[in-house]
Amino acid sequence: MGIIFSIISGKGGVGKTTTAANLAIGTAMQGKKTVVVDFDIGQRNLDMILGLENRVVYDITHVMDGDVRLRQALIPFKKNENLYFLAASQTKDKTVLNKEKVEKVLSELKKEFEYIFIDAPAGIESGFEHAVYFADAVIVVVNPEVSSIRDSDRAIGIVDAKSKKSQEGKRVAKYLIINRINPDLVQKGEMLSSEDILDILEIDLLGKVPEDQIIIEASNTGHPVILNEKSEAGRAFKRISRRLCGEEVPFVDIESVKHSGLLKSIKKMFQ
């Protein structure tokens, strides 16, 4: 039986889809049978990030409505044979989701795959509840920035109130990924450090991802950063994926500025 991870955030645009894509590729690279599902009905994006936009014939609503079988809608990720992708509908809206249909698709996926990643719609939009209702664990993506952090706290509150596990009195595991950390700004005291953010949100850290220009290039080309050895963000996603596969990977201090030449360290003393 597979584990369902829902990737959520408070507000949009914090890198949720990028995170879902990279973590799914990451666990697939670790040899796990993985599927990543776009639950952002009406705002399909994951297909672009994965470079699979031309391969989508059927989407999740076709499967839920019984038009096609799950197998027909699953799109193989060419760059790794362990990974499959299930697209969101672009034409329908979020109201097409209902609990029974969602449960049916997810339970089928659980039989076939070890890791199921759900790319949830942002915040408390409709559709969000469906994306977290059946989750075994929730991964919260934040940026080190006030509105993202505040909104994510509300989203976490909804997970606690609305998920199936919570309603059955069980605990839903919640993990935090801090994305787009700018080490220079953290050092200057002009950006919240990961320690500050963990203090405020009071949930467990899963990983820290630095800001990385290669991410833009990656989404331009549909070739996710985790496949790029040169990308710092890619390496960070790889570490997180290994953690998800049960490996103990120490947290790398990405917040200290590394390129401290002599001049820079002297300058720093006077800052």
């Binding site: 006030v146 952090i149 505040r150 706290d153 509300r154 509150g157 700004l185 953290v186 200057k188 005291g189 002009e190 950006m191 919240l192 450090s193 500050d196 203090d199 405020i200 006077f270 800052q271």
Partner: peptide, 30 residues
């Protein structure tokens, strides 16, 4: 300058203080 940095609180600290207050209130009202 060397002295300038002691004068005003860095913005990250202000963000933390403000978030702590805002989130405590949010949690209460929810």
């Amino acid at each position: 300058s060397l002295f300038g940095s002691f004068k005003k609180k860095k913005s990250a600290q202000r963000a933390k203080d403000r978030l702590n207050v805002a989130i405590t209130l949010d949690r209460d009202s929810n």
